[in-house]
């Protein structure tokens, strides 16, 4: 085991891919000479050169499409979109093209690309730079969406993504790059589609992913004061999802809270809620609580931002209100 932060785990995975697969190249805005807006690609340009680490113009649709096209003739591009907010400029390429190519060509063509992008709020970047669209992408058949919350999953999922032949949205939360954790020294992959129980408990289940995991952990620690044992399920992947593990946890605890940084209306968390109530209705002792960001464009001012994002206080209130705990 080696302790490292999530940023370094990703960087390790990218270097590995560049070292072992001659068709891998990286492409994105300021990932090269500048060193990467979030420094994940720092030093790669110096070590691998401009053929492997391509600085692109600010043309999200253009370079995502270029990645798609190159993958259709044998390349394995790892594309960085600086933030998921800017991915909206490439949404035609992602949703209309990457997600459909394999299906519409009936398997003649594949689009094995990875789109790394930064999701989430918390940096006081205001309404256009604080959104969490990974759930949107997860709703599109043909796309895979992963959203790791810790260094070992980040590396394991990046490895699995590199060995996968589908278009993958690899959502990295801006507030998690500095999170540290132990990473195994021997090679491993984290299977795409498999959630993980990161804390075991019998009293309630909290389902979360990405930037909501630290909130879930804080809530769990507060509930311990009330002698309540929380089970935390980290989804890790939003599409596909192996629901069995989730159902088993619900059947054990009978109470569910879902944390989703997206707005209340039309959230991915609400989808998870509906799947659980269809499959586990008889096991539920209370309504399923879904805690989202408030339906407000993200305000800049610090106290306001903290209120809009699901926070420990608001989650505890909801647990008190709906679950009676």
């Amino acid at each position: 085991m080696t302790e490292m932060n999530l940023r370094d785990a990703l960087s390790k995975g990218l270097r590995e891919a560049l070292d072992t697969n001659e068709n891998v190249f990286l492409m994105g805005e300021d990932i090269g000479i500048y060193g990467g807006p979030y420094a994940v690609t720092k030093g790669l340009f110096e070590d691998y050169g401009s053929e492997k680490i391509i600085d692109t113009p600010i043309s999200e649709s253009g370079f995502v499409g270029a990645g798609i096209g190159s993958s259709m003739v044998g390349m394995k591009p790892i594309i960085e979109i600086m933030t998921i907010n800017f991915s909206l400029l490439a949404i035609d390429q992602i949703v209309n093209h990457a997600a459909k190519m394999h299906y519409m060509s009936d398997g003649q063509l594949s689009v094995p690309i990875i789109i790394r992008t930064v999701t989430g709020a918390g940096g006081r970047l205001a309404a256009t730079h604080s959104q969490s669209f990974e759930g949107w992408y997860a709703s599109v058949p043909g796309l895979i969406v992963v959203a790791p919350s810790n260094p070992s999953d980040a590396l394991g999922l990046l490895r699995a993504s590199i060995n996968d032949n589908n278009p993958i949205i690899f959502a990295e939360h801006s507030m998690l790059y500095g999170v540290t954790g132990d990473v195994p020294d021997q090679y491993y992959e984290t299977p795409i589609g498999l959630p993980k129980i990161i804390e075991e408990g019998n009293d309630l289940t909290i389902i979360a992913w990405s930037g909501m995991i630290p909130v879930a952990q804080e809530v769990s620690s507060k509930l311990k004061d009330k002698k309540l044992q929380t089970e935390i399920v980290d989804l890790r992947t939003l599409n596909p999802i192996d629901f069995e593990l989730i159902f088993n946890s619900v059947k054990k605890t009978n109470k569910v809270v879902i944390l989703d940084e997206y707005w209340e209306t039309g959230s991915f968390g609400a989808y998870i809620c509906s799947v659980i109530q269809e499959n586990c209705f008889d096991y539920l002792d209370a309504p399923i609580a879904v805690v989202n960001s408030l339906n407000i464009p993200m305000p800049y001012s610090a106290d306001l931002e903290d209120e809009v994002i699901p926070n420990t206080k608001r989650v505890l209130m909801k647990i008190d209100e709906l679950l009676g705990l």
Binding site: S70, V73, H97
Partner: peptide
């Protein structure tokens, strides 16, 4: 024959990518 594509202009970035892929593989 890499497709008819039904979003106006949407296939042009992909054309760029196919050419990029060919160039990178010295084809």
């Amino acid at each position: 024959f890499m497709g008819g594509h039904a979003i106006v202009g949407g296939h042009l970035p992909i054309a760029v990518g196919i050419a990029l892929g060919l160039k990178k593989q010295n084809k």
